[in-house]
Amino acid sequence: MFSEQYQGKKILVTGHTGFKGSWLTAWLLKLGAKVCGISDQIPTTPSMFEELGLDQKIEHHFCDIRNFEGVSTILKKFEPDYVFHLAAQPIVSVSYTDPLDTISTNVMGTAVLLEALKQWNQKCNVVVITSDKCYENVEWVWGYKETDHLGGKDIYSGSKGAAEVIIHAYYHSFFTSNKNNIKLATGRAGNVIGGGDWAKDRIVVDCIKNWADEKSVDIRSPKATRPWQHVLEPLSGYLTLGSQLDKNTKLLGESFNFGPKAEQSRTVLELLTDLSNQWDFLSAEDAYRVTDNIPFHEAGLLKLNCDKALFYLNWEANLSYKECVEMVGDWYYSFYKTEKNMYEMTLDQISKYEKLAMERGLVWSQK
């Protein structure tokens, strides 16, 4: 799976020290790729990047994504075959306390990478990752399509919508006939959960941290419904998209949604109940308690229509809701309650994901 496309190839991952960036880096290493990472810091403590020892396995750079000279220098020295751009300010609550940093990181950081690519003269496939929050959420019950209106009621959503507008403008201004060595597309996903996430103000993270200390957790929106997906689902989509950019010109400059199966949608309360079952609580009341403290606007429902990814990429989600929850719970339980090597644990979960996709005959997994 993917080894033909990525084995021995040079892959630049921005935001490689983050949650999704660490999982993507581990998967690329498993595929035999040579990985270079750009990130401004280790974003959390604990850190999946540190726990997996990834700094010893890749070419690792601390560099602010808004630093044009730094990004450009790394790009030209490493000469990647592929770029996956994940560097961002990813936390909605932080966008309220520091809106300017959120906007400059998510919008100008993306523009800096695109400008560095524009001034580079090598062939490269580029997947820029934004978010499902780039859509203006009117809380309808059907999934958002790639052609729906961009924007949002909060700074984070606005920054992701703005990033998509900048990507679209850069593609049509510089990466079509005048710069066709750069093959560019964007990926959108959200409600991503998985082992190794310790970012602030995320419900699964808050629960795991409290449960590890044998404490209950406050939940503020128990009825909020989300289409939860394991981190490997969108990553498989990004890898599929990157691998096909050379082969299909219809993908160039396009955006693609990557989301879970329709049956994945569950309330926060349902998710936490299922996760808590893996932590030996005597009752759900010992695991969490409901509060009404909602400090900022939260959307009630936002899900994606992934028909475009199925039609053009033959991509579809792999895991059931039960499998997703089990993988999340198993990773964290192993981290907090066992002496397992977490790099090996992570590779084992990737192998399990790959095996399930191939056994189920998912087209993207056969290539």
Rank of each mutant, 00 (worst) to 15 (best):
S3H: 07
Y6K: 01
Q7I: 00
G18F: 02
G18M: 02
G18L: 03
K20V: 00
G21L: 08
G21D: 12
S22M: 12
S22A: 13
L24R: 04
W27E: 08
W27Y: 11
K30F: 07
K34E: 13
D40P: 10
Q41W: 07
I42K: 11
T45D: 14
S47H: 08
E50A: 09
G53R: 00
K57L: 06
K57T: 02
C63G: 04
D64H: 01
R66T: 13
N67I: 07
E69F: 02
G70Y: 02
S72D: 12
V83C: 12
S95M: 09
T97P: 08
T97D: 08
T102F: 02
S104F: 09
M108Y: 14
T110D: 07
K118W: 08
K118Y: 14
N125R: 06
D132M: 01
E136W: 04
E136I: 00
N137F: 11
W140A: 10
V141M: 13
G143S: 07
K145L: 07
H149I: 00
G151S: 05
G152D: 07
K153D: 08
D154E: 13
Y156L: 12
S157E: 13
S159F: 01
K160W: 11
V165Y: 15
H168G: 15
Y171E: 14
H172R: 15
S173M: 08
F174I: 01
F174S: 15
I182F: 14
K183T: 01
A185W: 05
G190M: 06
N191P: 02
G195A: 10
G196M: 09
K200T: 04
I208E: 12
N210K: 07
S216V: 00
I219Y: 05
A224P: 02
T225V: 05
Q229M: 03
E233Y: 04
Q244P: 05
E254L: 04
P260A: 15
K261L: 10
Q264H: 13
S265Y: 09
T267S: 14
L271S: 06
D274M: 04
N277P: 00
A284Y: 10
A284H: 12
E285A: 04
Y288S: 04
V290T: 10
A299H: 15
G300R: 10
L302D: 13
C306D: 09
K308Q: 09
K308I: 03
N314Y: 00
W315K: 06
A317H: 02
S320R: 00
K322P: 02
C324K: 04
V325C: 12
Y332M: 06
Y332K: 05
Y333P: 06
T346L: 06
S351L: 14
E354T: 02
A357P: 06
M358H: 08
L362R: 06
